[in-house]
Amino acid sequence: MNPTHKIMIVDDDPNICEIVQAYCEREGFLCSHSHNGSEAMMMLTSFKPDLILLDVLLANENGIDWCRNARSYTNAPIVFLSSREEDEVKISALSYGGDDYVTKPFSPGVLMAKIKAHLRRVSTGRNEQLLELPGLTLDFYAQSVIMGSETIFLSKKEFGLLAYMAQNVNRVVSVEALFQLIWGTESLEDTRTVAVHISNLRKKIEADPAHPERIVTVRGTGYMLVARGGT
């Protein structure tokens, strides 16, 4: 059974938060809410919502700017709630990371239907976005690796390196191939930067980064992601 979907509401109007939360909980969703952007940003990393309802005009802050910053930490759908109906505001909201725009006053029933539609869209093909190996699972949607009960978020380049090695598990991948894949031919970097990112990756997924057992160095050639049963 899938866990309950988590909805985060970010609105400086307590009445809106209360009403929306009541409707969400009636649908079986788990809710959390915040009235300001800084608090909401902290909540984002602890609550890890599946969907965010966000007011365009927060107290002392622009919700669109908050959305743009939040995109560094989450891929969850963001549905804007706003009393602003100008096209330029809607375009800006959707251009900087928003997935939908609902104007106030809104029908709670329509809002719930939109929420469910976005959650279905995210869930569709979710299993196809997971690559399971013995001891670790790569989540291509969240750009993270799951090890046991722990989820570890990676940078874009770290995840790219790990994903390529995972798709070639237990096979040696050359440094040159990794460099071309992640940095490309036009990069001003050189292949030594691969070693730096591999080192950072090991710090996140190895029990003992100084003596790696998952990402092993094949001297003179490259690296190999080792995945064996029971590891």
Rank of each mutant, 00 (worst) to 15 (best):
L53F: 02
N75G: 11
C67D: 11
P77C: 10
D55I: 13
T45R: 03
C67I: 12
C67N: 01
V56P: 05
R84A: 06
R68S: 13
T74M: 05
I78F: 05
K90N: 02
N62I: 01
A76L: 04
Y73C: 05
F80H: 01
N75S: 06
D65C: 07
Y73M: 11
F80T: 00
V89Q: 08
L51Y: 07
K48I: 08
D87T: 00
A93F: 03
A93S: 05
I64L: 04
N69S: 13
V56T: 12
R68I: 01
T74I: 11
N60C: 04
S92W: 00
L53Y: 11
A93V: 01
N60R: 12
Y73T: 04
A59K: 15
L44F: 11
L57C: 12
P77Y: 02
N62W: 06
R68L: 13
L54T: 13
K90E: 05
N69P: 00
L44M: 14
L58D: 12
L58T: 09
F47G: 00
A76G: 09
D50K: 01
V56D: 13
K90P: 01
L53I: 09
L54C: 14
V79F: 03
D55M: 13
S46N: 01
N60V: 00
S92T: 06
E61A: 15
C67A: 10
V89T: 12
S92D: 10
L58P: 12
A70R: 08
L57R: 15
L51D: 11
R71F: 02
A59L: 07
L81E: 09
N62L: 02
D55L: 11
L51E: 10
L53S: 12
S72F: 14
E85F: 08
D87K: 11
N62G: 02
S92R: 06
V79I: 15
D50F: 07
V79K: 06
N75H: 08
F47Q: 04
W66Q: 06
V56R: 09
D65F: 04
